[in-house]
Design a protein around this nucleic acid. Structure first.
Lengths: 107, 107
DNA sequence: TTGCTCCTCACGTCACGTGAGGTGGC
DNA sequence: TTGCTCCTCACGTCACGTGAGGTGGC
């Protein structure tokens, strides 16, 4: 599916659906919002709406807490670090391509 | 101070000193060892000996737990990520230097 | 009415120290 | 003897859900 930059058709899920996708209870998602882990949008300011991106973030948080025993404060720090590492990885790949290009030109 | 690769004069601290340097109780360090956070060497298999590196690791763990509320499982994951990021940063700097060198040569 | 949503309150469990209490070697 | 070390046991506190219980809109 092709999506425009401001395409409102981006998939969104109510709490019960999001909870099932992630594999947690709806109450847990409300708790996560209360302590600031995730901030879903709301339909007319009432029902929570979780984006695809929200769901992926929640899945990652779940794997950190359940598989590794990390608490939620730790999960937030780790999410930020992972994001930063992805940026660094992109930078490395760009530079590698640049060096390779010059290598070819030099020969 | 210059240290050889196998220099035994590397500074080491008994538990009370290490605890004071880090700002925690000795019991806490014993607890950290029990759950696998840190593995100090032992003097003749008896008293724990903390290296400078151990102390620095413990200080970092303390800042994560006290300042950010991260638990010990999270601190271990974060320590590994930070180490990996430092490697990536080194790689980026090497490549930047390389590109700059070629830039100069090219003009 | 049914099945969702919203909310708050109260509870259980466990991680994380921390004190107590007794031991042994320099 | 003093002051450290070692160890184990038991406790307090808090993070993290989770169930209960009552509300309101499609």
């Amino acid at each position: 599916m092709v999506r425009g930059r401001f395409d409102d058709s981006e998939a969104c899920y109510v709490i019960s659906v999001a909870a099932q996708m992630v594999g947690v209870r709806a109450q847990t998602l409300r708790y996560y919002e209360r302590i600031g882990i995730i901030e879903p949008s709301r339909s007319q300011g009432r029902n929570r709406l979780y984006s695809q991106r929200d769901v992926e973030k929640l899945r990652y948080v779940k794997s950190l807490t359940e598989d590794l025993g990390v608490n939620l404060a730790g999960a937030e720090v780790i999410l930020r670090l992972i994001e930063k590492m992805a940026e660094m990885q992109t930078r490395i790949e760009q530079m590698e391509a640049e060096l390779e290009k010059r290598e070819e030109g030099g020969i």
